[in-house]
Structure formats: structure tokens, C-alpha cells
Design a protein around this nucleic acid. Structure first.
Length: 382
DNA sequence: AGCCTTTGACCAGCG
DNA sequence: TCGCTGGTCAAAGGC
């Protein structure tokens, strides 16, 4: 901010400190928001209560900043995915197996580097995690890099762009549908939901083939790739960034986004590398509204619907698949030879379908392209 | 004109 | 009780 004019600079400027409103009301609203922001602050707390959450959304995965949507379209990966995707009509994917168990669901898109071994712990929490395995093709050095680092490295190479979203998490109740990840993530069949949207949305995309959406997006407002990436990671909903902060333990700054929908309180956190690659995405809450039109400015019309939106698949409003799931998907930053899909224990049965899907994807993807490849490992398969 | 991003500060929770 | 950390707010500026 400009030191010059920003009132914030003045300690006394904002009434905040004194703001009684600030005191978080029981409802959870914090700050002076008072009634001011409809749904804003209170929303935060609401979010916390899954039960209140009307819908669960599917977190989408972001497309690598360097990658253009077109690439995906053409990319074997995408194709592979498409193949895997349940037919829109039938929607046949087995329900996304969302693993409930935890209020928050996390999807890990990142590389499944060993560096993220921890993630598996989440399983216990009922999280379902898909991890990509390191790609042989990638520079060994990269592979060696620790998770995030490696991501960054990958990020540099746009070609490899898939690396982007390493980690996606959804907090609160996430229904399987929500978990659906974006493109790369989408690749992961975490849920049947994806397919739906994917189909419909994909079709849309096809309409605008390649359009270099990415480039366009990147240009958007001059935001760096990082922003674009984040945006791209959208699941089709419009998000507004309301904050950014460096979190301890994390090398990369974390960006906070809110759904721009009036009544929607869904939030998501992006953690991205300096390169702009998204290393982690965390969703909080569920959308209580249908996806906005792709044209929307917010998305810049870029929404990559590649990923199926969970909600779309599910009920638009409720969206949901009955279960809250926690799912983690790893994007393939580095395609590994094996895909890993971790399912939350106990949920495995549900997941099975997904797992199968994953497996299939894995097969197809792996062989075709290194890029595509988000490798997911299914526990069930394993 | 409207929306979004940026950015510093504020606040609550937790150890 | 204090300090740290994460999350959010809101003004300013940009597109």
C-alpha cells in the first residue's frame, strides 16, 4: 500500500482497534463489519459449520500458470482425462467418494514428493489424498527438490506446467463433488462430479478452443501469472482476493479468496510459489449457489471448466453428494509413474469407484505423457 | 463504473 | 499474561 495515503498507516486511523464491532460477535463476525458486509464476516464462522453449509463445492485445481488451457485441451492428459471422465450424460462415475471424517478436506495437488509424506497422515483424518508421483522425465534435480521447491522448479518450465497445484484442500465439509479438482486435479477422478461439469464445460471450452485463455488471463489486470493461476484454479466460481499473507512454515505467500457471490461465503486459500505456481489450495465452505456463467468477468471467461465441478454434478444448489468428503488430490506437477490416491479409511468403499477411475487414469495418462500425468495412487488399487 | 488486487494493520486463537 | 501466527478488513490503486 502506499504509505502516503493509506489510512491504515495511521495507527489511529481506522477505528478498528476501538471498534467494538470488531469484537467478534458470537456469530463469528469479526471486525466492524457489523451488518455491513452481508454475509461476510459471519460467513466465516458459518463456514465452520458444515451443517450450515448449503453446498459443498468442489475445489478446482488450478492450471499451471504457464500452461494454457489450450494445452490441456490438446494435451494427452486432458484427453486421457476426458476418457476417464464419466459421461456427462450418465454421470456415471461412481460417486465421488468423499471421505468425510474431517471437517476440512484437503486436496493435494502437489507433487507427491516424498516431501509430502506427511500428507498421508491426513488420511487418518478421513482425508482422501491423491498424490502424483514424481515424473521420471522431470529433471532429477527437480525431483529431488522438496515438495514445494520442486514445484517451483517445475513451474519454471512452463511446458511442464502441470505442476501447478500441488495441494488443494477443502476445509469444512466438502462433498465429494466439491473435491473435484481442476484440470490437473480434474484429471483425478476423485469424484464423479467432475465429469459432469467437465463435460459440459469442456464442451464449452471446445467452443473456444484454445483460445489461449491462459495468456489472456495472465494479462488480466496485469496480474502476474500467479494471480492467473489462482484464478484458473477456480472451479468456475468467481473469487475475489481479500488478503494475502505469508504463513509461517510456508515459503510462499498465502492468498485468501472469497466467492464473490452475494450469499456465498465460500473461501479458499491459495498458496503459491514465487513463480506463481499454486502449491496449495484450501477450500472452506460450500457454495450455496450455482456456478456463474463462464463468461463472467471474474473468471475472465477463463474458467477452465475442465474440471468438473462437483457441485454442478451434484445438485446445483445443494450440491452435494451426500457425503462430506475430504479429498486430496495431487496435481501432477511431476507425474510419477504411479498415481497415488489415498483414501480416507473407512471411506474406501466409497472411494472405490473413484479409485478405479484413478487407476485407469493412471494407466492411460502415464503412458501417454509425462505431462498429463497426474498420477494418482489408489489405496484401494494398491 | 465496477470489480479486483494489493497491502498494512487489526484481531482472535493458541501455546 | 505475553507473544506468535493465521485470518480478515478495508483503503487505494489498477484494469
Amino acid at each position: 500500500m502506499e504509505p502516503t495515503s493509506s489510512p491504515l498507516d495511521h495507527p489511529d486511523a481506522p477505528p478498528r482497534s476501538s471498534d467494538a464491532a470488531d469484537h467478534r460477535d458470537p456469530a463469528g463476525c469479526s471486525r466492524n463489519s457489523g451488518p455491513q458486509a452481508p454475509g461476510c464476516r459471519s460467513a466465516r464462522y458459518k463456514l465452520m459449520s458444515p451443517a450450515k453449509l448449503p453446498i459443498s463445492r468442489s475445489p478446482r485445481v488450478a492450471i499451471p500458470p504457464g500452461l494454457s488451457p489450450t494445452s490441456f485441451l490438446e494435451s494427452p492428459v486432458l484427453l486421457s482425462n476426458m476418457k476417464l471422465e464419466p459421461s456427462p450424460t450418465t454421470g456415471s462415475f461412481p460417486e465421488r467418494r468423499m471421505l468425510h471424517g474431517s471437517i476440512s478436506s484437503t486436496t493435494s495437488l502437489t507433487n507427491n514428493h516424498p516431501s509430502y509424506p506427511d500428507r498421508f497422515d491426513e488420511k487418518e483424518s478421513g482425508i482422501f489424498e491423491i498424490q502424483p508421483s514424481p515424473r521420471p522425465n522431470l529433471g532429477t534435480a527437480e525431483v529431488n527438490q522438496k515438495g514445494k521447491e520442486s514445484m517451483q522448479v517445475h513451474g519454471h518450465s512452463q511446458t511442464q506446467s502441470l505442476a501447478l497445484v500441488p495441494f488443494v484442500k477443502s476445509e469444512l465439509t466438502v462433498s465429494p463433488s466439491e473435491l473435484s479438482l481442476s484440470p490437473p486435479a480434474k484429471l483425478v477422478p476423485s469424484g464423479a462430479n467432475l465429469p459432469d461439469e467437465v463435460d459440459s464445460e469442456e464442451s464449452n471450452q471446445q467452443d473456444h478452443p484454445g483460445t489461449g485463455m491462459q495468456a489472456t488471463q495472465s494479462d488480466h489486470k496485469g496480474n502476474g501469472p500467479s494471480v492467473m493461476a489462482e484464478r484458473l484454479s477456480d472451479d468456475g466460481y468467481n473469487w475475489r482476493k481479500y488478503g494475502q499473507k505469508i504463513v509461517k512454515g510456508s515459503v510462499f505467500p498465502r492468498s485468501y479468496y472469497k466467492c464473490t457471490h452475494p450469499n456465498c461465503e465460500v473461501k479458499k486459500l491459495f498458496e503459491r510459489s514465487p513463480d506463481g505456481h499454486i502449491t496449495e489450495i484450501i477450500y472452506k465452505g460450500t457454495h450455496n449457489h450455482p456456478k456463474p456463467q463462464p463468461n463472467r468477468r471474474a473468471t475472465g471467461g477463463i474458467m477452465l471448466h475442465i474440471q468438473g465441478e462437483g457441485s454442478a454434478n451434484v445438485s446445483p444448489l445443494t450440491g452435494e453428494t451426500p457425503s462430506n468428503v475430504y479429498c486430496q488430490t495431487s496435481n501432477i506437477t511431476e507425474p510419477k509413474s504411479t498415481t497415488q490416491l489415498s483414501l480416507a479409511a473407512g471411506n474406501e468403499d466409497r472411494v472405490e469407484g473413484a479409485a478405479s477411475l484413478s487407476c485407469r487414469i493412471r494407466d492411460e495418462v502415464d503412458e501417454d505423457d509425462p505431462f498429463s500425468k497426474r498420477r494418482v495412487r489408489c489405496h484401494s488399487c494398491d
